[in-house]
Amino acid sequence: MPVFVLLLVMMLAEIAVIVAVGQAIGALVTVGLLVAVSVVGVAMLRRQGTRTLAAFGDAVRNRRDPQPQMVDGMLVGVAAGLVLFPGFVSDVLALLLLFPPTRAVVRRRVLRRAEQRRPTQVFVVDSEVVHPEPPEPIVIDSTREDRP
């Protein structure tokens, strides 16, 4: 239920901001500005997404912890969703997530929160691996009828 309320508040805020900007600068300029901000957002999204993917591959190849790059990828994905959501508020939030310094602040908070939520107890289950016996080979005995 809170997600629904958040989306409803977000939609109302977007409509209010669009109406306010439209009254201040005109409807046609407002639509042009919405399109321009979305185009800039998509361009930044492509660039930052490519950088994040390259950094993740580099971390895996060099056997470093890929968690920061994974969180960056998640945040770039959230920014992609926000860019697709029409309006100024969502576009500004998306651009903040695409801008590396502000994304680093959000990444640190996400990683800190994930660390706090990680369970401290580890359960080890004692088990034994049993390999089944290989099946007997299948032998096909056939004769050709055209040869004696």
Rank of each mutant, 00 (worst) to 15 (best):
E136I: 05
G22Y: 03
L97A: 00
R144N: 13
R61P: 03
P135M: 09
I140K: 14
L93R: 01
V139F: 12
A94Q: 00
H131I: 09
L84M: 15
F4Y: 11
P119M: 09
M11R: 07
R47M: 12
I138Y: 10
L45H: 02
M10H: 12
T30N: 03
A43P: 02
I140Q: 10
A114K: 05
P148Y: 09
A59R: 06
P135H: 09
M11I: 11
V71M: 02
A13S: 13
R107I: 02
F88W: 05
Q121G: 06
I140T: 11
F4R: 15
L111A: 09
A55W: 03
Q48W: 01
M10P: 01
T120E: 14
V3R: 13
P68T: 03
L7Y: 12
R109T: 12
T120M: 11
V124D: 04
E14T: 07
A114N: 07
M74P: 01
A20T: 14
R47Y: 11
E133A: 15
T30K: 02
V17Y: 03
S142T: 12
R144P: 04
E136Q: 12
S90K: 01
A27M: 11
A13E: 03
P66R: 04
L93G: 01
R107W: 00
S90H: 04
V5L: 14
D126F: 01
V106P: 00
L34M: 12
I15N: 09
V105I: 15
V9K: 06
V29C: 07
L34F: 02
V110D: 02
